[in-house]
Design a protein around this nucleic acid. Structure first.
Lengths: 356, 356
DNA sequence: AGATTCAGCGCACACGTGTGCAATAGAAGA
DNA sequence: TCTTCTATTGCACACGTGTGCGCTGAATCT
């Protein structure tokens, strides 16, 4: 712990620069002394001080990763991808949960700046203009995941799934099954991915000649409890939907659980589509139809992009461009052709309400 | 980014130690200059260099967290607890996925040592004696989660759930439901938590006058695929069980999925109990009966313990002791009283086999 | 044999911050 | 008025590492 290159130098009878060079395998040092010093370092249990090294080289080999919460399985898989490729390239990951609190987010960024990270990856859902400004100040390249960066700075790039296309896929699938009254449960407010998925949803509807109905847009929050509340809201509608496209799988999970409690059969009475394809989607009751995102791959890609930005710097930063990946529809058992049953149930509900 | 206290000193017409003291609110500096310097630092966008500070103070305010994989929701929740309390105390978390590969684990620890972390929390499943030795070398306090540390060093403590009691609870529940042939699907090899849960399982059996049957111990790995294979193994037994206790929820998830594919009704034909109570346990089909671990709380507790160890050091390290928390049984719909049905199915299977 | 090259190593400084101690100046006391 | 105290501030050094440059001695060249 406390043995430095000076200690090794003393033990070997040389100067500390010689030790420094020997350990970094510099050609300036003879084979003999190099071997001697390296063995000595091994014996003395030497561990290079990354702080001192970073201080002079201005490279810390660590990157900051800012997420809303690591407890979200979607986020966890992305971080998994980031961490493994970071590790493979000798980089260390500093994890920051923002909890979607702006204050905490800013504190995290300030910390990362102090620690002089070589780069930052952000998976927080909404990156306001103000927040982006804070990020820029960090002086290190930034990669955003699933976020637009309209006013992208010099070193701010993004990796994202084609959310609009994904929303179009999900909704198109439901339309193809015969559904015409299709709800969308939104995600966290002001997130670009939510707006894009919603745009894809609208696009699919109008494309099929269905007039989008604003009352079918139900507010959620990207978490199960949001999905549970969304179901209640849906059922209280004058003309409830026969199918629903959820912002993400977590929302769908909550919605399905609420449906089970209220005795609504899925997919018989209500078809449900999610987004993300988290590990548990296939283990749900019923297994969830969803739009799969290449999560681990996105993490890896983001980290690779960051590495390029770090090594490139002033050189050829222009060559790097934002990446948009395509998600793909995974059809499971939570969606089903619109049958008489679902339609009847919907009509009955309306009738029931009109009787009152 | 590049503005240092020297730059501020130059701008303020003072020496850099004065700036250093002013920014740390030292009583040695007059109110007037203190205010002036602090405002100047603000204006110039100063960010203290944590590397330089850590180099001289020998404190980095960062802790290492070593996990098998962050993609495991059980692990993710623990890390969530660790990160929030770390952040609340001004500490930063460096995340390391070991992927259960010893080589990678050692590399991670070596990295943490280089970065001079103030402490380490390990959630890897098996901490061999050799690995512990590496950890000790780091020269910083270590807290293990869900791991015994028989030869606990001076600064190595642990936080764990009472695995034996948990295993006893789960198995006792099944026995109370009338089951007598109860399987146990193991977790990762050589993990202390697996052995303890298994011990609790045996204890409950013998306590109820049931002779433990070694053939009912099915090897798993703590992941869904292990559970899936375990089901196949179970069904090929001469006298298959009517209930199964799984090492963890992920194993149970895989097992239940396999059962669904093979047309085995749960809980009618087979009762299933898990361990952990991950978020998804209640959303499964059927909702999973399981032994709940206070995951977030465990993470928080581990971090608090680490903080105590860091601040205490030579002082009163002896006052800190290993913590054992109690899990509690959460009964849902995956377990059910042993009825004729399950028993008959089991008998039929035997008969079927004997016919061949 | 003298001049030149070059391998191998040490000197000195830098990175940005914290801290013990001396120095200064002004105020207070004698 | 001289001394003593005290409030501020600067000096010097330390933390551990990397690197440009100069120095030495031996080998090579002419």
């Amino acid at each position: 712990m406390r043995v430095s290159i000076k200690d090794i130098a003393k033990a070997a009878g040389v100067s500390h620069p010689t030790v420094s060079r020997a350990l970094s395998d510099s050609p300036l040092i003879s084979k003999a002394t190099k071997a001697r010093i390296q063995r000595l370092a091994q014996e003395m249990g030497y561990s290079p001080n990354a702080l001192a090294r970073g201080l002079v080289t201005r490279q810390t080999y660590s990157v900051g990763v800012v997420v809303t919460t690591i407890a979200d399985p979607f986020v966890a898989e992305i971080v998994q991808g980031i961490e493994t490729t970071a590790h493979d390239h000798g980089y260390t990951v500093i994890l920051c949960n923002s909890g979607a609190e702006p204050q905490r987010e800013i504190a995290a960024v300030e910390m990362l700046r102090s620690k002089r990270v070589d780069g930052v990856i952000v998976t927080s859902s909404r990156v306001g203009a103000l927040y982006l400004e804070y990020l820029e100040r960090i002086g290190a390249p930034v990669v955003l995941i699933n976020n637009h960066n309209e006013q992208s700075g010099h070193y701010t790039f993004s990796v994202e799934v084609d959310n609009q296309h994904g929303g179009w896929l999900a909704t198109g699938h439901l339309i193809q099954l015969g559904h015409r009254r299709i709800s969308y449960v939104t995600g966290p407010a002001n997130s670009s991915s939510d707006l894009d998925r919603q745009a894809g949803y609208r696009h699919a509807l109008t494309e099929a000649g269905i007039e989008p109905d604003a009352t079918l847009i139900i507010p959620g929050n990207g978490r199960p409890d949001g999905g549970e509340r969304a179901l209640d809201t849906m059922l209280s509608l004058a003309d409830p939907p026969t199918a629903v496209f959820c912002y993400n799988d977590m929302t769908a999970i909550g919605l399905i659980a609420a449906a089970r409690r209220r005795g609504i059969a899925i997919p018989r009475e209500l078809s449900v589509v999610g987004f993300d394809d988290i590990v548990f989607a296939s283990y749900l009751d019923p297994p969830l139809t969803t739009v799969a995102q290449p999560k681990v791959e996105m993490g890896q890609l983001a980290m690779h992009m960051l590495l390029s930005l770090i090594t490139a710097r002033e050189d050829n930063g222009e060559e790097i461009s934002n990446k948009v990946l395509q998600g793909n529809l995974v059809v499971r058992a939570s969606t089903r052709k619109l049958g008489r049953r679902a339609d009847n149930v919907a009509r009955e509900r309306i009738a029931l309400r009109q009787d009152k």
